[in-house]
Design a protein around this nucleic acid. Structure first.
Lengths: 256, 256
DNA sequence: CGCAGGTTTGAGAGGAGTCAAGGGTTGTGG
DNA sequence: CCACAACCCTTGACTCCTCTCAAACCTGCG
């Protein structure tokens, strides 16, 4: 384990700073978090169901999926994680929770001990709130996913996934007719969408025949964003968090 | 709005104390939170999609569902909330998030302004961590739900819902052959499970014919818990959080 | 008594799963 | 440079789970 490496932990600081303004002392605490880097081979489950986790994961490069599976072993991916995101952040406060992580591609991930993060949160309220916030944004994406899986048919679910992925990789620019890496096999797509691989294939074909997207070996090009959004019933507002009013040093407790 | 009413806010304190040990000063802050009580008629959407929420809800009595809906208006209930639970806690840190709440029964709910809770969290790390924790437990339930909807067929989903409901209402006692209130119509069940009402009816019938449960006007009796758990592929471990090691006054920062 | 809302059941349609076979690509080793 | 294996994608045929439409049937209530 690398020791207090400012460089290693930087992606976490950047990520949290997207929605939270830290004071210097808090930044200092974050930078002093212990962290180690782990390289993960593609198509590997690097956190397995049933293992009790003691570290949190931050994706530095690659694509990670959090999944669960039923007794027969059918997988359901619950959420996807891009660089900067944290697939198992909630395990800091719910360490007993069932968790499994899969690397869709070769990945480099950062791992930070629960104990250290929890201590930072327990001593610095702003850090605790920032982590809660990050956790909540993840939960909001999962909730949106529930609607998609429960109440939309295959083509809509797939379109929604593509829309979400396009938005999340595009940064803040609108996706438009973007092209992006999509290193996910059709079997994986089935596990994401709750569909059989065969049906994923047919559904992809119908998106292609409708001239909404084209795709060739792990790259996707969006041909008709407007229509794709309509098919997906997609509203991107859930993906971004506005910046909260910063913690007031001069407290204005309007209700106290 | 009642003013700093210790009595009103008590359910929140009790709930958080289930998994967090507070210091007196933190308890004091919690007890001083502003709160008001709202009575909600049965079958009412008392928080609607699109409204920007400024208050958090704590269920005091009754049964609340958090839901979303697609363009055609089909509903999907994302999570159920029993007394003591908080359906929109995450909106404190993600106020822009899409949220709608439905009262399945007549309810009494407590409402606390975001600003006050956020301020308490920003000034008291233990409160922030406790709220994060409560939020994370909710997220874990939702994730489990994704597996159920995505990778299980109707009878298994329904059985899973019954198992979860039985466990959550039973407190810590094992449900066994319990009987409990289940004030949910078959249409509502469809919205919970992502099924049509007609199919809910047939699925209920097959559970009944298999002698796993019986039900008459909003009461359910579990006849064969073991078998129901098997059909549901149910593992209750995700429902409870163990108590975390308390915040150390004498800090032992093993990694710093 | 009659209405409203929930439940039950039937019949037919359709979306998605399963089984199975063939075709492409990539990478490795001879 | 070719052969082969592994993996993924594609397609067809058939089955099955779930949906929709529709009609009764309850039950509580005004």
């Amino acid at each position: 384990m690398e020791h207090c490496n400012v460089r290693i932990i930087e992606p976490l600081v950047i990520r949290l700073s997207l929605h939270t303004d830290f004071r210097p002392c808090e930044l200092d605490i974050l930078h002093k978090l212990p962290a180690r880097i782990v390289e993960v081979m593609p198509r590997r489950d690097f956190v397995r169901l049933g293992e009790r986790s003691t570290e949190v994961t931050i994706v530095e490069t690659g694509l990670v999926g959090r999944f669960d599976q039923n007794r027969q072993g059918d997988r359901q991916v619950v959420a996807l994680y891009l660089p900067g995101e944290m697939p198992d952040l909630h395990t800091v406060v719910v360490p007993r929770s069932r968790i499994a992580l899969h690397a869709f591609t070769e990945c480099r991930v950062i791992r930070v001990p629960h104990a250290a993060l929890l201590d930072a949160a327990n001593t610095h309220a702003a850090i605790a709130v920032a982590l809660w916030r990050e956790s909540a944004l993840d939960a909001v994406r999962v909730s949106t996913w529930v609607l998609s899986i429960g109440r939309k048919e295959a083509i809509s679910r797939l379109a929604h996934l593509l829309c979400e992925f396009a938005c999340r990789t595009a940064g803040n620019g609108k996706p438009g007719t973007a092209m992006f890496d999509f290193p996910i096999t059709q079997v994986d797509l089935g596990d994401l969408l709750g569909l059989s691989p065969v049906h994923v294939n047919r559904t992809l074909r119908s998106l292609r025949l409708a001239n909404l997207v084209s795709h060739e070996r792990s790259r996707v090009r969006i041909l008709d964003w407007e229509e794709l959004v309509k098919v997906a019933d997609f509203d991107p507002s859930y993906l971004t968090a506005e910046r909260l009013p910063p913690q007031s040093d001069t407290k204005i407790r309007a209700f106290a």
